[in-house]
């Protein structure tokens, strides 16, 4: 069935609505003026140069990268055994545990932020990098878990039986068969977790200190003070970074599909 003209117009408006704010931010970032304006005749890189001279954003970007990498790695490492157990073993409390692991999706990040703020202040680790990473592990765990779980459940149990029948013991089966087969799931789980962590503001606002501020939080506090072309340039760079990451992931998934192929059973 084809879309009628009305549908095409609706779709066009919808796409403009989705893209407009981001396009506008990127445009304003190129303004040659000292104030917010859309460049019409002349594009300038002066605000991007200013970003480079602004150590706050650079440091926050580094923190974000570090926190996202560490938190996603830890989340995936914890998710792998848990996902394997939930996908392949029948034990009491299995369903409940699965729901438990997905719970951070249901809890507003604001509540998590408050909970960690209180928890860390009692433990005396407020504002530390470790605290920040632990918080992010909790937030991204469901995403890592979901992808690894999908890979583990999608795996034909008979493949493992086949390895066993051919004489492979449990450890060999894990090392040679199970783990290689869920690696794509681990990779996509890591990617998804990384993105979630990198974008997280609400919880981080509560638990980041001046030395452990992440990029979105730094941008958020900056915007609360003032909105100027500088923050637009930072946002434009962030959008560019995201688009690049998306392309890489898309490419990477494509390659993975090629490698693993479609399950025909």
């Amino acid at each position: 069935m084809r879309n009628g003209p009305l549908a095409v117009v609706f779709h066009a408006v919808f796409v403009v609505f989705l893209l407009a704010p981001m396009v506008l931010v990127c445009l304003v970032a190129f303004t040659p003026e000292g104030f917010l304006s859309i460049p019409t005749t002349r594009f300038s890189l002066r605000w991007f140069e200013r970003v480079a001279q602004y150590p706050d954003f650079i440091a926050a970007f580094r923190t974000s990268l570090f926190v996202a990498t560490a938190a996603s790695l830890i989340a995936v490492l914890f998710a792998v055994p848990a996902a394997l157990a939930i996908a392949r073993y029948r034990f009491t409390g299995r369903e409940a545990l699965n729901a438990f692991f997905m719970a951070p999706l249901m809890i507003p990040h604001l509540v998590l932020g408050i909970a960690f703020l209180r928890f860390y202040s009692l433990l005396g680790i407020s504002g530390t990098m470790a605290g920040l990473i632990i918080g992010h592990v909790v937030v991204v765990f469901p995403f890592a878990m979901r992808m690894v779980l999908a890979a583990a459940t999608g795996m034909d149990k008979r493949i493992e039986d086949a390895a066993t029948a051919l004489g492979a013991d449990r450890i060999t089966t894990y090392r040679r068969i199970v783990i290689p087969l869920i690696i794509p799931g681990m990779a996509s789980g890591f990617a998804l977790a990384f993105i979630q962590s990198f974008d997280e503001v609400t919880m981080t606002v509560f638990i980041a200190s001046a030395t452990t501020t992440t990029l979105p939080v730094r941008m958020f506090t900056y915007i609360q003070d003032s909105i100027d072309p500088l923050i637009c340039a930072v946002s434009a760079l962030l959008i560019l970074f995201t688009v690049l990451a998306m392309l890489v992931i898309d490419r990477f998934y494509g390659l993975q599909r090629l490698f693993i192929g479609e399950d025909k059973s």
Binding site: D156, R158, I159, D161, A162, A163, A165, G167, I177, P180, L181, F259, I260, G261, D263, S265
Partner: peptide, 14 residues
């Protein structure tokens, strides 16, 4: 030491 051919073949895709 038994040889098994599964209905889904269960070949190691990787």
């Amino acid at each position: 030491g038994l040889g098994i051919v599964f209905q889904s073949y269960a070949l190691f895709p990787h």
